[in-house]
Design a protein around this nucleic acid. Structure first.
Length: 425
RNA sequence: GGGUCGGUACCCAAGCGGCCAAAGGGAGCAGACUGUAAAUCUGCCGGCUCAGCCUUCGUAGGUUCGAAUCCUUCCCGGCCCA
């Protein structure tokens, strides 16, 4: 276990997961001396975490695999205030019901990727509302505020950029880092948590906690941040055409989640594998090399998608997503099993129709949403953009001429990746 | 309140009496090529009962054989003056 701990920082470094740490030698020594506790906070700004949060969650997981004790934290209290970090304008406060609901959803997700079975490295889920709500204002000002100077707070990038902007910064958001600092102190005092991790945008908030622990308790704590995940073209990571890629299967289906990773650019796939995969770095590097040999096989993307889909949604959902993709992107849908088509029906837009409706080809294409107007349907037909059960359609095509899959399915496809499954009755 | 410039299709933007469903660029869609990638090239990119017809150029009227283009009303935006 000591060996694992010693290697941990080296492994994280090799994976490009370390942006900044407090005194590195110190941290290394501490890690080598035995298991420690660490925490990462997640604010309930939505009713689900998204792929951008995975790096933080996996940070906890990596430490746990090395024998350390992770404390995933749901920001029931900090979520009420709003973190100004990385934002150019003031957040809208969420109402309490929404917040409570969000916390409960996020707590479920925080329990997915970590090991909660009893043991020295057992994960512990905490919520900062539990120790923040009971605190009285005057106590807070005396016990926390007194250890922090406004001068320091004003020096933070996140604060300064807002002061320079037209949008200003409310006192509420200004105080955010005090709450987070107090979290770290609380966890240090009551749970022996010595390390806080987070994204590089959290550095200021994290070291505020380190400072508070030193000034208030006379103890020394550690901080570590990971780089924020970026995309090759500079656009925000974690957004697909349909919006954010959520971890909640009701918000982003396991199939859509899988596809998000499958469609990662070649230039970024090695980086993402290093950052997200829990497999040993040598294995990851071997995959990347094999990928470079034959990039058209998308080996790296497939490994990445498989591992993360299994991790987040479980092996059954990952199998079903694989199968659906095989039907949709495989050469010949007529070979698909009926079970696979049932999966597909859940994953792509689908509808039920009478066989007579198929006589109206243009109408069907509009009804299924594969064309926004009959004109567009006609144009796309002229451009050979539609297939039905794998057969290319033209303007004179009759859908009724096409053999249904398993006697009742018609799989329509526009272009490469737009599908609609019609069940005929 | 006065003056002035402007409001064109998803976005930017040309057009300034007929050849205008409206140049060009971007975005988007399809095809070729591919690898469910990137790049490139080609086509499309208001609607329909599609060799034709209908509805669009802030709004409502008007002039004209004919208007996105000229005149007037009103609405909205920029700038200057008060």
């Amino acid at each position: 276990m000591d060996r694992a701990s010693t290697d941990l920082l080296a492994d994280l470094t090799a994976r490009g997961l370390i942006h900044d740490t407090t005194d590195r030698a110190n941290l290394e020594t501490r890690l080598a001396s035995g298991p420690m506790s660490l925490y990462v906070g997640f604010d309930p700004t939505a009713d689900s975490l998204h792929v951008g949060h995975l790096v933080g969650q996996l940070f906890l997981r990596r430490f746990q695999m090395a024998g350390h004790k992770p404390y995933p934290l749901a920001g029931g209290a900090t979520g009420m205030v709003g973190d100004p970090s990385g934002r150019s304008d003031e957040r809208n406060l969420l109402d309490l019901d929404t917040l409570r609901h969000n916390v409960s959803r996020i707590e479920l997700q925080l329990q997915r990727l970590l090991d909660f079975t009893p043991g020295t490295a057992q994960a512990v889920l905490v919520n900062n509302a539990d120790w923040t709500e009971p605190v009285h204002l005057l106590d807070f000002l005396r016990d926390v505020g007194k250890f922090v100077t406004v001068n320091q707070m004003l020096a933070k990038d996140s604060v300064r950029s807002r002061l320079d902007s037209d949008n200003g910064l409310s006192f509420t958001e200004f105080s955010y880092s005090l709450l987070q600092a107090n979290d770290f102190r609380h966890l240090y005092e009551h749970h022996g948590v010595e390390l806080q991790a987070g994204g590089s945008d959290q550095w200021g908030n994290i070291v505020a906690g380190v400072d508070l622990i030193r000034r208030g308790l006379g103890k020394s704590a550690h901080a570590i941040t990971h780089p924020l995940v970026t995309k090759a073209d500079g656009t925000k990571f974690g957004k697909s055409v349909d919006g954010a890629v959520w971890l909640d299967p009701d918000k982003t289906s396991p199939y859509a989640f899988r596809q998000f990773w499958i469609q990662v650019d070649d230039v970024m796939v090695a980086r993402y594998l290093e950052m997200f995969s829990l497999r040993p770095l040598e294995d990851v590097r071997a995959t990347v090399e094999a990928h470079a040999e034959a990039p058209e096989k998308r080996l790296a993307q497939r490994e990445l998608a498989r591992e993360l889909t299994v991790m987040v949604h479980g092996p059954e959902a990952a199998d079903a997503a694989d199968e659906a993709a095989a039907v949709l992107f495989g050469a010949d849908p007529t070979q698909a099993s009926e079970a696979a088509l049932v999966v597909v029906a859940r994953e792509v837009p689908s509808s039920a129709m009478q066989s007579a409706q198929l006589d109206d080809l243009l109408g069907t294409l509009v009804d299924t949403g594969l064309a926004s107007s009959k004109s567009e349907a006609r144009r796309t037909l002229q451009q050979k953009g539609y297939r039905a059960n794998g057969v290319q359609l033209d303007e004179n095509a009759q859908l009724s001429d096409i053999a249904l899959l398993h006697g009742r399915y018609l799989l329509l496809r526009k272009g490469k990746a737009n599908h609609h499954l019609v069940e005929i009755s």
